[in-house]
Amino acid sequence: MKCFEFLLPKRTEKPRNKGLTMVLDKGLGYETAKCLMEIAGDYVDLLKFGWGTIIVHDKEIIKRKVEMYKSFDIIPYTGGTLFEIAYNNKKIDEFFKEAKDIGFEAIEISDGSTDMKEDEKLEFIKRAKKEGFYVLSEVGKKDPVVDAKISLDRRIELVNAELKAGSDKVIIEAREGGKNIGIFDKNGIAKEEEVDYLKKHIPEENIIWEAPNKDQQVYFILKLGKEVNLGNISSDDITSLETIRRGLRGDTLNKI
């Protein structure tokens, strides 16, 4: 039972297919992560081990963290950069095997920092599905200059192709900072016409909008509703985001 539960607005409960919160783990210790999930695990759906962080951490600790997250009905997964590192090193077979050995049942496939061909990426998505993984893929480039060259129509084409190949969710790139990339300008403000165009051509339940900053989270919730899928949420902001979703913070109080 929650405190003042009679004042708590309802929303979709886990397991959810919409209103997903994807949280970024940048190297939390096991006990810290467990304590955080004990108080806020109800509000986390997907947990991404950021970029190549787990390569530099003890394997047994990562295994324990993966199982711990699963115990809270959370899907932990490897970040896309880790997959790209495996791709650059021609170690894709070893990557899939290691991911399973550690206990991951989900992976992210991206091409944000590589010159991976589109057909290659789609084949990797298909293979990951055949391997039994829940697949997240990401559209966009890490370099703002390169990313800016991708037109909206091209982004839509890529997203829909990846969904057709088997991606369960497609992430719209915004990086950890959420500025000057994808749908965000240099100040981190969403380009509303681009958001409208994207959501018109892609099923909303299949998109995860990376929105690392509070103002971005408020924007998407006010525009698309409390059940919008949001990603790259800091582990410090899990409870904050949930209160924004439920209208328990001034930013959305009486607005949703």
Rank of each mutant, 00 (worst) to 15 (best):
E5T: 13
E5M: 05
F6D: 15
L8A: 13
K10S: 15
K10L: 10
K10I: 05
K14A: 05
R16C: 00
G19I: 03
M22K: 11
V23R: 07
V23W: 05
D25Q: 12
G27L: 05
G27R: 14
G29M: 09
Y30N: 11
C35G: 11
M37D: 01
I39G: 07
A40M: 08
D42M: 05
D42R: 04
V44S: 03
L46D: 02
L46S: 01
K48Y: 04
G50I: 08
G50P: 07
W51A: 09
G52M: 09
I54L: 13
K59P: 00
R64C: 09
K65W: 06
V66I: 10
V66G: 03
Y69E: 04
K70Y: 01
I75L: 04
Y77K: 01
G80K: 02
G80C: 04
G80F: 04
T81K: 12
A86Y: 10
Y87M: 11
Y87Q: 01
N88S: 08
K90A: 13
K91E: 11
D93P: 06
E94I: 06
K100I: 06
I102Y: 03
E105P: 00
A106R: 03
I107V: 11
I107D: 01
S110W: 05
S113F: 15
D115N: 13
E118F: 14
D119R: 11
E120P: 06
K121M: 10
L122S: 00
L122E: 08
F124H: 10
R127S: 01
K129V: 12
K130H: 03
E131T: 05
L136W: 08
E138W: 02
V139Q: 03
D143V: 02
K149A: 14
I150P: 00
I150H: 01
D153N: 09
I156G: 06
E157T: 05
V159L: 09
N160P: 05
A165H: 01
K169F: 06
I171P: 00
I172M: 14
A174Y: 00
K179F: 13
K179P: 08
D185W: 08
D185C: 07
K186S: 15
G188P: 04
K191P: 01
E194I: 12
V195S: 02
Y197T: 02
E205F: 07
E205K: 12
N206V: 05
E210Q: 12
P212L: 03
N213F: 14
N213D: 14
D215P: 15
Q216S: 12
Q216N: 08
Q217D: 10
L224C: 10
K226S: 10
K226R: 15
V228A: 07
G231T: 00
I238Q: 02
T239E: 09
T243A: 11
R245P: 00
R245I: 07
R249F: 09
R249W: 06
G250I: 12
G250N: 14
K255I: 12
I256M: 11
